[in-house]
Every structure is written in C-alpha cells, then in structure tokens.
C-alpha cells in the first residue's frame, strides 16, 4: 500500500524523532496505533498531520486502518513529494481562508472565525488555520460539517500535489 508521511526537516519523524532513511525498509515490532509500527496517512488524513516534508511511503505486511492514520509493521520511504513546499502550504492556507470567507463571511458568530484564520495565516500557522476553518464549519453545520471541511482540504491538497486516491 502506498500512503503518505509528513516529516520534519531532514526526514525526521516529528513525534518519535526517528531519522528516516530513504528507500530502506524500516521494520517495527508490531502495528499498534501510536506505540508500535510505522505510522502514515491516507489522502483524506493529510490535513490533520501537516508538516515540513511530505513523503510517499510504501507499507507492507499488516496495515491497520485507524480514524486518522494507518499503521503497518514495515515501511520504506519511496520518494519525497517535491510539490509540497512552503509556497504550497501558504496557498493552502489562503484557499482555506477564501472558502471560509465565502461560506460564512456574512453568517453571524461563525464569521468571527475568519479573523482568527487571518491572524493565524499572518503568523504562518497554517495547520491551526485549517483547524479553525473546520471548526467554523462545525459551528454552522455540526460535526459532519467539520468532517466535510476536512475532506475538502484533503481534496485540495491531493489535487495540487497530484496524489492518487490512497
């Protein structure tokens, strides 16, 4: 299975601190969510895990699907998704702001999120801007609207990055 993995600069895992080799299989003792295993995300999970570098990762053996990630016993970085860079991150932020403004700009209360998103983007904090956009949608249309906004964000990313439907 091909999935995706956000890493810090230099190919370092943001939570485990593991420096990933490129092209070499990395094996874990098992595939237990958040403890053991190689963690990666599917296309629709991308907006939840934004990071500095995006890599395509091949997963093998048992791949366990979870709410917002997949976990496998073996994985190897296949290639870096070069299209993911600071400029695209900022463009993603602007797309989130534009959609939120278009949908909720004239809606009392919810429109307050727009100023929050603008402030976050001015500070370069795109992940929390995307979160705020989903919260705005939720305030307007309930939990399902939160999920739909996240799916829209994932669709935008996948489209701009030329990713498949994994």
């Amino acid at each position: 299975m091909i999935a995706y993995k956000f890493l810090d600069e230099g190919g370092v895992s943001p939570f485990a601190g593991f420096r990933w080799p490129v092209g070499e299989w990395v094996e874990a003792a098992g595939a237990e969510r958040c403890r053991l295993g190689i963690h990666a995300c599917r296309r629709d999970d991308l907006p939840f895990w934004l990071g500095r570098e995006l890599w395509e990762i091949e997963l093998e053996d048992e791949v366990v699907a979870h709410r917002r990630k997949v976990v496998a016993q073996r994985g190897r970085l296949v290639r870096r998704v070069e299209a993911w860079n600071q400029a695209l991150l900022e463009e993603f932020g602007r797309s989130v702001l534009g959609r939120t403004r278009g949908r909720f700009g004239s809606v009392p209360l919810v429109s307050g999120y727009i100023a929050d998103i603008e402030r976050f983007l001015a500070l370069g904090r795109v992940p929390i801007a995307a979160f705020a956009a989903a919260r705005a949608a939720e305030l307007s249309g309930g939990a399902a609207a939160y999920d739909r906004e996240r799916l829209r964000q994932a669709g935008w990313l996948a489209d701009r990055l030329g990713l498949g439907s994994t």
Binding site: P14, E32, C34, F48, H66, I128, F131
Partner: peptide, 20 residues
C-alpha cells in the same frame, strides 16, 4: 510516560500538529 490509551495519544498528537 506512554500511559495514554492509543486513541487519546492520537488526539494529543493531532493537537500538537497545529498548536505551537
């Protein structure tokens, strides 16, 4: 201390992605 339930650990890490 790695003492959280897996689903709670996942939520903590999701939060860490966007909360500086």
């Amino acid at each position: 201390e790695d003492a959280l339930a897996p689903e709670d650990r996942e939520r903590v890490e999701e939060h860490l992605v966007f909360c500086d």
